[in-house]
Design a protein around this nucleic acid. Structure first.
Lengths: 238, 238
DNA sequence: AGAGAAGCGTACGAAACCGTACGACTTCAA
DNA sequence: TTGAAGTCGTACGGTTTCGTACGCTTCTCT
């Protein structure tokens, strides 16, 4: 890889000389939907800085049910266990929307962490924000209704991807939200009747973003504010 | 404080010379039920190493509803935002069961983190385990039933406190679980009829721990395994 | 073109849980 | 002692969500 010009927000916030050091160890890869970056209870072999697309962090239950506990896009990275000194991960990382990532082997990642304090500091701060996202999801799952949660999820996905249309089946959304597939049909139907989204076979389009924010629970805003520190300064969405 | 002899697992796992350094900055305080250690959206003034009792990490919703997203006892500390370089906390820390803690001012805490790599490494690893606890709670809140969740919560509290009896109103439990108060009456009644617990006005007693584990969801075991690395070697509960 | 698979809309009874209310009993302070 | 507040058991209708099933449409492969 020649010139250091990442899209990833964390990498862009690095001091230029640190970025050079980090850049040498990165390999650009393609993210394919349903691709598993972090396998549950397995060793973490790489860290991934997302360049485009989104990755879902999932818990798998004993009965095989899965549910999303966090979402990572170009604002973040996958591989928190490496940063915190854990051998394995309890949370699975699966690609949700196709894109690209910059991959770094675990050994190189950990060496750079100890050599570049700014790098470590940045990733730790991201970890804190991500932690809030997971905590808010826990609260949201406990108290809020399906329609609100779906609206929140659409907004989070919208924030992390260009354009307003996402390839996404109801089946997949139902898994991430931890609900029945027909539950998605009903909830998304309600959002569509309200003129907030449009959906067709295997895709959803955000039509009225402000309306969608009003339809979602406060959890969206709470988490967004926590991530505001790494937003591009002059690039609000739409 | 004279001799460095903490109960707290994190402090006990420190190298002796590091513990000496840390010990000087600690002040022993009493934890009173409902006391707030970390105020939501406020600056974090101190870190707290729990010596006895438990502290709930809570999210407060816009409608005033609260719900627990994590639980800290003598195995851990309160103040993760300080470790990760955040100014404020989005999660409230409130004492759930009375006890004691060792308190350290934020400035001293951060200085020691940079001077004692083993200290920082230990707390980061704890943060990883705690993160799993929150993620599992998110999944649990989304998929599991009230009775299972209550059983899990009783087990987590039991692990972190001596004896089998806890002072605890149904009202308080309902808040932590994010459910109605009569929901607790019903759920705890079912557990009592099954001979797993006994409850009277303002208190719950664990009677059949193994049975309670069977009645809870797998979330309990998943999280417990993640915290096993800091268990006392020869002190399994009951 | 035809068959199969994938994705979606809808329906229905059942279960879980909610919001609320009320009464009984206990504790505590005046 | 007596009132007030705290705590708990119970009940009831209403809402949300579940589990499941079925049929329609669209896509894909041969």
């Amino acid at each position: 890889m020649s010139e250091a010009s990442p899209v990833n927000r964390l990498l862009r916030l690095l001091p230029p000389q640190d970025l050079q050091r980090v850049w040498f160890k990165l390999k650009r890869i393609t993210l394919v939907p349903k691709q598993v970056l972090l396998e549950q209870d397995a060793k973490v072999g790489n860290a991934f800085f997302i360049e485009s697309g989104t990755v879902s962090m999932l818990q798998t239950m004993d009965d095989g049910a899965r549910i999303e506990v966090g979402l990572v896009g170009p604002e973040g990275f996958v591989g928190i266990p490496l940063l915190l000194g854990e051998e394995t991960t309890a949370v699975e990382g699966m690609v949700q929307v196709e894109g690209e990532a910059l991959q770094m082997p675990a050994a190189a990642f950990q060496r750079l962490l100890s050599e570049l304090p700014a790098f470590a500091k940045l990733l730790l701060r991201y970890t804190g924000s991500f932690h809030v996202q997971v905590a808010q999801t826990a609260a949201c799952n406990g108290r809020h209704q399906v329609e609100q949660r779906l609206a929140r999820w659409l907004l989070m996905t919208h924030d992390r991807n260009p354009g307003d249309r996402f390839t996404m089946t109801q089946e997949f959304m139902s898994t991430l939200l931890g609900i029945r597939r027909p539950g998605v049909t009903v909830a998304i139907g309600a959002l569509q009747r309200a003129g907030l989204v449009e959906h067709s076979r295997g895709a959803v389009t955000v039509v009225d973003r402000a309306g969608l924010e009003a339809a979602s629970c406060e959890c969206y805003q709470v988490v967004k504010r926590r991530f505001a520190w790494l937003d591009p300064v002059n690039a609000p969405k739409s």
